[in-house]
């Protein structure tokens, strides 16, 4: 395991490939107090970065800082060359983020929630896109249900579907495998990999070695210190941290 800021298995890209994300000496934390080591990396389109590490290591804190939901203790993050500022329309057009926010409009149905996202992003054929994503996430029969009548896993699927009914050049997922059944995990991983191959930049926090192996093109192990590693090294690291992962 090398202590480095760039993945040795992924050499520096040609100048033509623009950084989608560039984190420089970024330290994440709360109220000025760092929770993990200093992170530096870059992520281009058609690349997928997995952030792995034990519970409480600060992975989600790093991700929230990367997308501007938390103030960095130190360092900077650039997304598409601009300093992170989620108040700009460009940022919100390009960056789709899925955290485990279990907050829903109690009176709206699943498809109405998705319609808000699709319509807000100016998607052409809203109904068709929604129907397609509902089918992918196995929620077609629940389209007219309200979120609080769904199971926890179905609500998770709904949150994930919301990220797919809209355009995006960077997708940020925090433990997307949580609460999903094995089949859904495999389908999601395959789809994400296909999207990454087609040009998407993906940042994902995960504890699932299989998910990571399918999706990631590079990885960072987060703890007190930060280690860049290959996906296979990261998968092994997760497996040794969490032998019960399915």
């Amino acid at each position: 395991m090398s202590k480095a800021t760039n993945d040795p298995k992924n050499p520096a890209p040609s100048p033509a490939r623009k950084d989608v994300v560039r984190a420089e000496k970024l330290q994440a934390g709360y109220s000025g107090k760092a929770v993990c080591g200093v992170v530096s990396f870059s992520l281009h389109s058609s690349q997928s970065l997995a952030l792995v590490g034990p519970n409480g290591a600060g992975k989600s804190t790093v991700v929230k800082t990367l997308v501007g939901q938390l103030e960095a203790v130190s360092g900077t993050t650039l997304i598409n060359g601009a300093e992170v500022d989620d108040r700009t329309l460009d940022f919100r057009r390009e960056v789709a983020v899925v955290f485990d926010d279990d907050a829903f409009f109690p009176s709206l149905t699943v498809e109405e929630h998705l319609a808000i996202v699709a319509a807000g992003h100016g998607v052409g054929d809203v109904e068709e896109v929604i129907a397609s994503e509902l089918e992918f996430f196995g929620l077609t029969e629940q389209a007219k249900s309200r979120p609080y009548n769904l199971s926890s896993g179905q609500r998770r699927r709904m949150l994930l579907a919301a990220a797919f009914v809209r355009p995006r050049s960077l997708l940020v997922l925090d433990e997307p495998e949580q609460r999903l059944d094995t089949a859904m995990r495999h389908r999601l991983a395959s789809r994400l990999r296909a999207e990454v191959d087609a040009g998407l930049a993906l940042m994902v926090v995960t504890h699932d070695p299989d998910f990571l192996s399918t999706v990631a093109t590079k990885a960072i192990f987060i703890s007190d210190t930060i280690h860049a590693m290959t996906p296979s090294q990261a998968a092994k690291a997760i497996a040794s941290e969490n032998p019960h992962a399915d």
Binding site: N80, F105, S107, L108, A119, G122, P167
Partner: peptide, 26 residues
């Protein structure tokens, strides 16, 4: 960074849509 020429729905329209859909089940 790709940009869309025009947003299809405004915040006001989304807001109205959310409330109308909610109230229809009141």
């Amino acid at each position: 960074m790709s940009t869309q020429a025009k947003e299809r729905f405004s915040a006001k329209e989304i807001r109205n849509y959310t409330f109308r859909a909610g109230l229809s089940r009141t």
